[in-house]
Design a protein around this nucleic acid. Structure first.
Lengths: 209, 209
DNA sequence: GTCTATAAGGAGATAGAC
DNA sequence: GTCTATCTCCTTATAGAC
């Protein structure tokens, strides 16, 4: 954006855009340099390797996409509205930048090793966020009351993530039955968000007897 | 497999394995040649370009992953069992080769243009399979009877695809809370399949009044 | 049909001038 | 800090011998 910014930040900023659009293997340091308006050697001067530059872009994005499941904080609302809030917030975050979901998923597929650094942080029960722990408690409570079916809290969140992210992965097919204009796109996203919400909420109900 | 097979078929066979494991950009024709045990020029003699070779591998896989949603044919069973069958069959197909889901999704993300050739076939209502049309009829029927909530048939299938495919995309994280042994993996897949089924079935119920 | 050799280009990274 | 020049390696594709 601003020509006179710190060059290191400009490189990071341009790299972010290009990595998001074309992935790690699809983007060359030469290309980044050209877009920044500097020499390719400068990229390596600041970030030493392409891998390291990528990590500096990738890492905050992963945190965003995973930790965002925690975000909508304690208001005094019922369980189902709480779940609705989670979906709303999560979907909204992905909608803010539609390149985010494909970017993360692509890297998860192509370089699973990069995730090992996150596994510990997100899967060990000791290091789980307090928001997750509170959510877990709510689920157990509702389960005991019999207001929801028997289900693990982590599965609820996995299902929410899967359905939201898939919406954006499939978008290029979904809203392009012929033409790709932005109103068709918006319509597709709105419709999917609504159906995902209904599915999750309805799917939580205890089975009829 | 057999050393004395037709070389063209052996190239295709090896290319399939490598593309599935490392994607288009991660696999070089040189590498394929080495694995086949022939010269790199021979790949181009038979397939002209890497792109063409890839297409010959990719195309049948897409058909498999999309058309498999149609497959479990008419038995005389109720609607919910029919849906259960679809999930079972679809999940089972992906389980037969766990590289399939990541492969397809990765290519969908990195080269959306490749899908334009399939869009017409799968999204035009005139060219839809008769199995889909029959499924659509069943949904309308159940909807009219009030035995399921108000939902579009295509959304049911999108949700099934999303949840099944996501299971395999997330598998490297999912069953690797520390160790990756095959019993943990099997346990993870079984559990997710069951939860996905419950979610879909339960999510189809009409809301309580 | 299968080979060797090579063309033509792009990649990431570094040395060294300024 | 920023540049030019260059090293080394690897890619796809083709020409031409056998």
């Amino acid at each position: 954006m601003d020509r006179n910014q710190n060059i290191e930040k400009r490189i990071l900023w341009v790299a972010e855009r290009l990595f998001l659009e074309k992935g790690f293997s699809g983007t060359s340091t030469t290309e980044i340099a050209k877009a920044v308006g500097c020499n390719q050697a400068l990229i390596h001067y600041y970030f030493r390797t392409k891998e390291k530059l990528f990590w500096d872009v990738f890492s905050p994005k992963v945190e965003q996409v995973v930790e965002c499941l925690d975000a909508p904080l304690d208001e005094n609302i019922g369980f189902f509205d709480r779940v609705r809030n989670i979906i709303d917030f999560y979907f909204g975050m992905l909608e803010l930048d539609e390149r985010l979901a494909p970017f993360i998923v692509n890297e998860l597929i192509m370089h699973p090793a990069r995730w090992e650094k996150f596994r510990e942080r997100y899967l060990q029960s000791e290091s789980r966020s307090s928001a997750f722990n509170r959510f877990e408690l709510m689920v157990e409570e509702e389960s005991a009351k019999g207001t929801i079916r028997n289900v693990l809290p982590i599965d609820i969140l996995l299902n929410v993530m899967s359905l939201c992210i898939s919406t954006f992965i499939m978008a290029p097919m979904g809203y392009a039955r012929g033409e790709c204009d932005s109103s068709t796109r918006k319509e597709y996203l709105t419709h999917r968000k609504q159906d995902v919400t209904e599915l999750i909420i309805n799917g939580l109900m205890p089975p009829r007897q």
